[in-house]
Design a binder for these strands. Structure first.
Length: 511
RNA sequence: GGCCCAUUCGUCUAUCGGUUAGGACGCAAGAUUUUCAUUCUUGAAAGAGCAGUUCGAUUCUGCUAUGGGCUACCA
């Protein structure tokens, strides 16, 4: 293949982009970068009914967050502008009529009601209605009506559509980069609408083929739901005489619900407790909101890594990939053929891997906004240190606050279980004694405090667990957290003493 | 209903005719530990079924079953 690689991601702005769409965009992007090609973003807004304001911006924001860069298209421009199909409407009618003139398509005047009636009739007979070679000759089409009447109807302003004249009993032979050779008999297909006069807009099929051709797309990488319309698309390329430059096709396996049973849909997320969208979304019309990976505490690198491995694998046992590594190892022939069930647990695991590998500086940048949201103003080093100490216990960025809040705020309640277990017997007395030991330490560094306290515990013959967990109760208020010397060093001597005093003063020891 | 696609541990997957069928998530047990985690070790866990091709099939073919997609003047 000599021609330059040019791929496109062509979503329609009918709502927020979900993770299946993100994965399609990702594979397109990886393929483009792998082959030194161009990644194009085209907005397919040919359905005026389903257009959702804000969806296009959401798509671009999502791609940017994911690190998927657009070389050409909506938002960045390029030699084939405009890239929004609603702004290209003038183009399509010309191609549609060209098809009619060549005999590949025809006008149809059926109303929605008439078509409904036809469908119901067929259903009553236990059949499915198909608009095809069998019926187009006796319905209100330019194939059945006299030319004058067709002209008259159009001039009169009757609504019409242009339908593709699907050949009868011809086998279309297709090749898919992922699925291999596929054949379909055209008699099982129907006459799809290509253009509708009602809104002077093409349907997906026409716009898609025309634009892919005009934009010199070399590879069409899209979801498997498009495989059934591939024969039509092949035939369209033939009808236009563009077969020589027809792109290669690759149909990606679908992302399925975690429970099986169907492709992942926008509703599943809230129902099953995981985001299906990259970013938080608020519907401009209904005000409904949906969780996003970003706001739920996922790192874009982890999110992308997880999506990349859902339906593709490098053939090695490597699981953690930077975007560059994905680019270097991606290939369409390692994309699997069957649908992949989405696994929320694995998404969290990937995120944990990335979180655990971050240094304090990186953590500080991510954690500061969360701290500020809780009213905590500290230096970056402090934020990074706190997050750094606790990062191994977190899977999501958002879990960091619960994990580190005691570094910044003294406990005002004490976890019952921990209190019952340790705030009894001689432990209060030992804690009071430990208070004296701590008060006498000048160098309160982690190492020095540990050395002195350890020596004291050994000398007095106390149980390490008893002492440390009682101290933990005072400083953290719960039976969790990092090593105690991490806490003492972080909050400092005076704060340690205050917290010990508070426990002794407020909590009645048990039996 | 019709057309198309798919089918290896619960899940994501490796295997491109000969393997003790490998890895990861999750799960279980143990070790580590001042708590909670982390980490480490170990374990349970799979070729949908039936024919055929072959010296030999998870791998190739067919059928069945199951899952999924499409079947709009939506994409």
């Amino acid at each position: 293949m000599e021609r330059p690689v040019r791929v496109r991601f062509a979503p329609s702005p009918t709502g927020p982009l979900h993770i299946g769409g993100v994965r399609t965009a990702l594979y397109n992007y990886l393929f483009a970068r792998r082959h030194g090609g161009a990644m194009i973003l085209r907005i397919e807004d040919t359905d005026s009914q389903r257009f959702v304001p804000g969806a296009e911006q959401y798509i671009m924001d999502s791609l940017r967050w994911c690190g998927i860069e657009i070389d050409e298209g909506v938002g960045v421009g390029g030699p084939h502008a405009p890239y929004r199909q609603s702004e290209r409407r003038a183009i399509y009618l010309k191609y549609a009529t060209e098809l009619v003139e060549a005999g590949w398509a025809y006008y149809a005047f059926d109303t929605a009601e008439e078509l409904d009636a036809l469908r119901r009739e067929a259903e009553a007979r236990g059949e499915a209605f198909a608009y095809n070679y069998a019926v187009r000759g006796r319905l209100a089409t330019s194939l059945a009506l006299p030319a004058e009447e067709v002209r008259a109807r159009i001039e009169r302003g009757d609504q019409w559509v242009i339908r593709f004249r699907m050949p009868e009993n011809e086998v279309v032979k297709m090749d898919d980069l992922i699925r291999g050779h596929v054949e379909v008999n055209t008699s099982t297909l129907d006459d799809k609408v290509l253009y509708k006069s009602a809104d002077a807009l093409p349907t997906y099929h026409l716009a898609n083929i025309v634009d892919d051709h005009l934009m010199e797309i070399s590879h069409v990488i899209r979801g498997e739901e498009w495989l059934p319309s591939l024969p039509l698309h092949y035939l369209l390329y033939r009808a236009f005489g563009w077969e020589a430059s027809r792109p290669e096709f690759a149909h990606l396996p679908l992302l399925l619900k975690p429970t099986g049973g169907g492709k992942l849909s926008k509703r599943d997320g809230d129902k099953m407790g995981f985001p299906v969208f990259p970013l938080f979304w608020t519907s401009p019309t209904t005000g409904e909101t949906a969780h996003g990976y970003r706001e739920d505490g996922y790192l874009p690198q982890a999110f992308i890594n997880m999506l990349a491995l859902l339906g593709w694998n490098p053939g090695t046992e490597q699981e953690l990939f930077t975007m560059q590594e994905l680019v270097d190892s991606f290939s369409l022939d390692r994309v699997s053929k069957s649908g992949a069930r989405f696994q929320p647990d694995k998404a969290r695991w990937f995120n944990a891997q990335y979180l655990h590998r971050m240094n304090e500086q990186e953590l500080a940048a991510l954690y500061q906004p969360i701290l500020r949201a809780h009213g905590i103003e500290v230096a970056d080093e402090v934020a990074g240190k706190a997050a750094g100490i606790m990062k191994e216990r977190a899977q999501l960025l958002t879990e960091l606050w619960d994990l580190t809040s005691f570094f910044f705020v003294a406990p005002d309640t004490y976890e019952e279980k921990q209190a019952r277990k340790y705030w009894k017997g001689q432990n209060p007395a030992i804690l009071a004694e430990l208070r004296g030991v701590l008060a006498s330490i000048d160098d309160f560094s982690l190492e020095n405090t540990e050395r002195i306290v350890r020596a004291w515990i050994e000398e007095r013959g106390y149980g390490m667990g008893q002492v440390m967990n009682t101290l933990r109760l005072a400083l953290v208020g719960a039976g969790k957290g990092p090593g105690m010397y991490d806490v003492t060093a972080f909050i400092g001597r005076e704060e340690c003493l205050r917290r010990i005093d508070r426990l002794i003063a407020t909590l009645q020891p048990g039996e």
